[in-house]
Amino acid sequence: MTTKHGTFSLWTLLGRTSAVALAVGLGAGAAIGQKAFQGTPSIVSGDAYIPPSTDSVSLNSTQAVIDWTPDDRGPASAGTIDFLPQGNTVTFSSFSDFTVLNRILPLDGNGLPVSRAIAFNGTVQSQVSGSPPSAGGAVWFYSPGGIIAGANSVFNVGSLVLTANAIDISNGLDRNNIRFAGPAGSTSSVELLPGAQINALSVGSYVALVAPRVVQGGTVTVNGSTAYVGAEAADIRINNGLFDIAITAGTTDASGVVHSGTTNGPESAGSADPQRIFMVAVPKNNALTMLLSGNVATRQRRRSPRTGAPLCSRRVPTSPMTSTGTSSPRATPRRRWRRVSASDRATGGTT
């Protein structure tokens, strides 16, 4: 055991370096004697209890940082690490809202860092205790070799971050200002395979996938804001349920963001209930083409032109889109927003 005390709408983003973007505005546990997460935890900060089965993480503090060393100590050539096998469930919980950063850091047989992707093939859920418990809390996962959410993976969470870029905690864990920084030239990715599910259904939830290459082929449903960010380094500020995204180092990947799955959410209840989906990629050296297809749907609430009274809602799917742009590697992105229709192409040019 480990214990330590202590109305959706559609937008595009045009940037100085052609940051191209699109914005539209619980399971069975691990068997006895087995481990759910295939790794050994070390609590870096905060107060948490993790049993030997690793099928639960109970937080007694509002924030925690946990380092995980995978049990699989193979070399880089051994390929992807099955960190959460199919059929296993891990539950993060607390008595109040919380944020927990899980840093999954693969080592080889000599105890040296090794670049290997880690895979989730089971279920991750987070909840705040009550009668009954409710989905809540923010669960963040970082692994430098990349993260793969397999076809059978399910995330039922309050909010979620999946990233291949290290998260800066030099000034503590700031849940509203997340600073991502990967090594220069990184080609690591975050990938959701077809069949993967992310459900963040609490009001004001968020989901962020951040890596030099982001591939969304699964189904993501968020009652709040969603961001797919293709970059080596980025800052995300969460402000009243919306993302303010600044790219500080672009990506060398040819696409940055590839979307072929489904991303959606419930109807916005009004201005106090923002619903947005952001897709952002900045080319570091060469032109970049985001590949956007699948279903990115908006739900619009129509009102009577005569009385202003709400009418029935309608769901507006986007058509397949492609975004391109070029940049100077020394330039700093500058954000500028303009509203477009759902059928427009999101195309960036140097400004």
Results as ranks from 00 to 15, higher is better:
residue 249 A to W: 07
residue 129 S to G: 14
residue 106 P to W: 05
residue 40 T to R: 02
residue 188 S to K: 03
residue 222 V to N: 13
residue 182 G to E: 02
residue 18 S to F: 05
residue 2 T to L: 08
residue 241 G to H: 08
residue 34 Q to S: 15
residue 185 G to H: 07
residue 179 R to N: 08
residue 147 I to D: 04
residue 106 P to G: 05
residue 28 A to W: 05
residue 216 Q to L: 08
residue 346 A to F: 08
residue 316 V to C: 07
residue 250 G to R: 00
residue 195 G to D: 08
residue 129 S to A: 15
residue 195 G to V: 04
residue 123 T to V: 07
residue 189 S to Q: 09
residue 295 N to T: 11
residue 262 T to K: 09
residue 243 F to I: 06
residue 16 R to S: 15
residue 18 S to W: 09
residue 199 N to V: 06
residue 90 V to M: 04
residue 95 F to Y: 14
residue 307 T to Y: 03
residue 167 I to C: 02
residue 338 R to D: 12
residue 41 P to R: 02
residue 185 G to F: 10
residue 189 S to Y: 02
residue 162 L to Q: 02
residue 57 V to P: 01
residue 172 G to W: 06
residue 262 T to N: 03
residue 185 G to S: 10
residue 157 V to A: 14
residue 313 S to A: 11
residue 94 S to K: 05
residue 240 N to I: 02
residue 348 G to R: 12
residue 342 A to T: 12
residue 269 A to C: 11
residue 119 A to I: 00
residue 7 T to F: 10
residue 114 V to M: 02
residue 296 V to H: 00
residue 150 G to Y: 02
residue 279 M to I: 14
residue 153 S to L: 05
residue 11 W to S: 15
residue 154 V to K: 09
residue 152 N to Q: 15
residue 17 T to Q: 14
residue 25 G to N: 09
residue 124 V to I: 15
residue 160 L to Q: 10
residue 226 T to M: 15
residue 190 V to Y: 00
residue 311 L to E: 13
residue 321 M to G: 07
residue 99 T to D: 13
residue 233 A to F: 04
residue 129 S to P: 06
